[in-house]
């Protein structure tokens, strides 16, 4: 499986997944300590999806994300310490403390924003894909959304529009089994979200979202199709989240030991590490070096975020308009 990617790519993928994991684990801890305002939705456990998808993209491609967006941001190249500062609501944050966890965006790297509205992203990527199509540079746009958003009208409308306008879009449904506290096995009317693609005239595929290689491969196919002007695709990644819907979720809707089992048996990073150390020359020591670097990066991001100043009161009124 690892054969199609270079050692460098694989190490990059590992670093990205590990960065997301450490970022989220650390936010979990810091949130519990009371240092982080508001509420956050953690992506830990789903790293193979964001990473496997985004490795197929360039800075000129766009993604739209959702409320559980930290992983997508990191995978698309948003700078980590800015993200951490943003989550702390600090002036040095990616969005100067005006967006927070649910609105981290950096259009310069093609990240159109996490989104507080379930189903908010799919229409927006149709627009980014339309820009790409009209600009004729082969760009693509992808929407990450969950099983909850897979039931939103905006998502259906966007899938239809993307097919009708033949837009270079890839829809990535991350089905982690729960929309908030409700099971997708109950709330989604079909067994696989990917089968809905047929109704919109596009290819749909379900992959094991714990498997980086499966996600990467499926996305590669879909992105190539989009770049070739053949229209949109839908990929469903079935995966699991390690934490609750948001920090503070009692998770009583989950079975006892459910998360423990997932962490032990379905950890996408453990699986990825095992594969690459078995199939390539990469050694556990190589990964340990990256682990140390990632740890240092997150430590420094948190330290910096904690030390940073709050946004100045004068910024309350700025950036509502470009000119008013």
């Amino acid at each position: 499986m690892a054969a199609s990617l270079s050692v460098e790519d694989l190490l990059d993928a590992y670093r990205t997944m590990k960065t997301i994991r450490e970022f989220e684990e650390r936010v979990h801890v810091e949130f519990a300590k009371g240092g982080i305002p508001g509420f956050v939705h953690l992506y830990a456990g789903e790293e193979a999806s964001a990473t496997g998808v985004c490795m197929n993209l360039t800075e000129d491609d766009y993604i739209a994300s959702n409320h559980r967006g930290h992983g997508h941001c990191i995978a698309k190249g948003v700078e980590v310490s800015g993200m951490m500062a943003e989550i702390y609501g600090k002036g040095s944050g990616t969005c100067h403390g005006k967006g927070g966890s649910m609105h981290i965006a950096d259009l310069d790297v093609g990240m159109m924003g996490a989104n507080g509205i379930v189903g908010g992203g799919p229409p927006l990527v149709c627009g980014a894909a339309l820009s790409a199509k009209l600009q004729g540079k082969g760009g693509v746009a992808l929407a990450f959304f969950g099983d909850g958003a897979s039931n939103q009208g905006t998502t259906f409308e966007s899938m239809n529009l993307a097919t009708v306008w033949k837009l270079p879009v890839v829809f990535i449904a991350e089905n982690n089994g729960y929309a908030e506290a409700t099971a997708s096995s109950w709330s989604v009317s079909c067994k696989d979200i990917s089968t809905r693609a047929e109704g919109f005239g596009m290819p749909g595929v379900t992959v094991d979202g714990h498997d980086f290689f499966a996600v990467h491969e499926a996305t590669k196919t879909a992105v190539e199709r989009a770049r070739a002007g053949e229209g949109p695709s839908l990929i469903e990644c079935k995966l699991d989240r390690f934490f609750g819907h948001f920090e503070g979720d009692n998770q009583k809707y989950r079975a006892p030991n459910e998360v423990k089992t997932i962490r032990e048996e379905k950890d996408c990073i453990k699986r990825f590490s095992a594969t690459i150390t078995a199939d390539t020359d990469i050694t556990p020591d190589d990964l340990a070096v990256i682990d140390g670097e990632v740890q240092a990066l997150i430590d420094s991001a948190v330290a910096k975020a904690v030390a940073d100043t709050e946004p100045g009161p004068e910024t309350l009124l700025t950036d509502v308009y470009i000119k008013y």
Binding site: G127, S131, A132, L161, W165
Partner: peptide, 27 residues
Amino acid sequence: DRIMDSPISESALVGAAVGAAATGMRP
């Protein structure tokens, strides 16, 4: 092609206009 009909899907239509605006067009 710079003027295009849309399906009757106002969310996707308006959202696409917004997304295109954020990524370099003036819809």
